[in-house]
Amino acid sequence: WLKDELKPRQDVVDLISEAIEEPPSSALGEGGVIRQGFSEELDSLRLASKSAKQYLANLERQEREKTGIKSLKVGFNKVFGYYIEVSKPNLSQVPEQYIRKQTLVGGERFFTPELKEYESLILNARDRISELESDIFHRVCRQVATASERILAVANTLANIDVFSSLAEVAVRYSYVRPKLTTDNEIVITQGRHPVVERSLIDTSFVANDTYLSNDDAQLIVLTGPNMSGKSTYLRQVALIVLLAQIGSFVPADSATIGVVDRIFTR
């Protein structure tokens, strides 16, 4: 029956593979979520933004060579945008085409018409990339959502397979046995073990214990011992063995006969 439920939607897989980067950016709208080639408009904007950024990366070197001002810097802030910064000792070397933008204590900031043009190109492209990428992503999500029922069915089937294979693997690896489930009023466990505690011991082996409980003649066990002697572990291991048996798992014991129970009390 599990095989019958494994009906993957190849069209959804193909859509996600074509549309979404692997791995995608952690933040939507930064240009790293939608895959290159999925949207021609988005690709064009990315190329324009990249070219403009490359121009600005080269601008500082070019302007230093043109003006002879070795300390010239090209920078950016959110208030003034892109600018060319020149220190006070070098203001006499500033070309005429530089337009003053801001005066500082140690110098002045300028821009040029060309710099302003590239600034506008970068900022507009960035805003449009963010808007377009978000729009494309949500459109893809809506398309995927139309197949949500079948996707969830496949996910549920895979979850079942994961549980069953894990129970099978641990049973083989740690010598679990198949319990016998009955409608009797007895719990009979021979050499039962706590499935978690026995795997956590390093320098010693787990001490297995028998259990016999019956509604007829053994409804109660009086369990005594000093602190840290394993009383709580014993209680939990019986409960876990009963639970594992009733969900269809093998159990950590030499043998186990479990009468069906409808509740487990914990403290």
Rank of each mutant, 00 (worst) to 15 (best):
Glu40Tyr: 14
Leu42Tyr: 04
Tyr83Val: 10
Gly37Asp: 13
Ser44Trp: 04
Val79His: 15
Ala57Gln: 15
Asp11Leu: 04
Lys88His: 10
Gly37Lys: 11
Gly31Asn: 10
Glu63Cys: 03
Ser25Pro: 09
Val13Gly: 05
Glu21Arg: 03
Ala19Leu: 09
Ile16Tyr: 02
Glu22Ile: 14
Arg35Gln: 08
Phe38Gln: 06
Arg46Pro: 03
Ser25Met: 07
Ser17Pro: 01
Gln36Tyr: 02
Gln97Asp: 02
Arg46Trp: 00
Lys66Asp: 03
Glu18Met: 04
Leu91His: 09
Val86Arg: 08
Arg35Phe: 14
Ala52Leu: 03
Ile20Gln: 01
Tyr55Met: 09
Thr67Gln: 01
Asn90Cys: 01
Ala19Ile: 09
Ala27Asn: 01
Pro95Glu: 13
Ser49Thr: 05
Ile84Met: 08
Glu30His: 12
Ser71Ile: 00
Ser44Met: 08
Ile69Val: 05
Ile20His: 10
Glu63Thr: 07
Ile20Tyr: 09
Ile34Trp: 03
Val13Thr: 10
Thr67Phe: 00
Lys78Asp: 01
Asn90Gln: 03
Asn58Gly: 14
Val33Ser: 06
Ser17His: 01
Lys50Asp: 11
Ser49Glu: 02
Arg64Phe: 12
Ile20Lys: 03
Arg64Asn: 08
Glu40Gly: 07
Val74Ser: 02
Glu30Phe: 06
Lys53Met: 11
Ile34Val: 00
Gly68Trp: 05
Arg46Phe: 10
Ser26Ala: 06
Gln62Asp: 12
Asn77Leu: 13
Arg35Ser: 10
Gln62Asn: 06
Lys88Leu: 08
Ala48Val: 10
Val74Trp: 06
Ser44Cys: 13
Val12Gln: 07
Glu22Asn: 11
Gln54Asp: 04
Asp14Thr: 00
Gln36Ser: 02
Ser26Thr: 13
Gln36Arg: 14
Ile84Trp: 05
Ala57Glu: 13
Val13Phe: 11
Gln62Trp: 08
Pro24Lys: 14
Val33Trp: 08
Arg46Thr: 01
Gly75Asp: 15
Pro95Gln: 15
Ser26Arg: 06
Ala27Lys: 05
Glu21Asp: 01
Glu96Arg: 14
Tyr83Asp: 03
Gln93Lys: 15
Pro23Ile: 13
Ser51Tyr: 01
Pro24Leu: 12
Val79Ile: 15
Pro24Glu: 04
Val79Lys: 15
Val12Asp: 05
Arg61Leu: 05
Pro95Ile: 15
Glu18Ala: 01
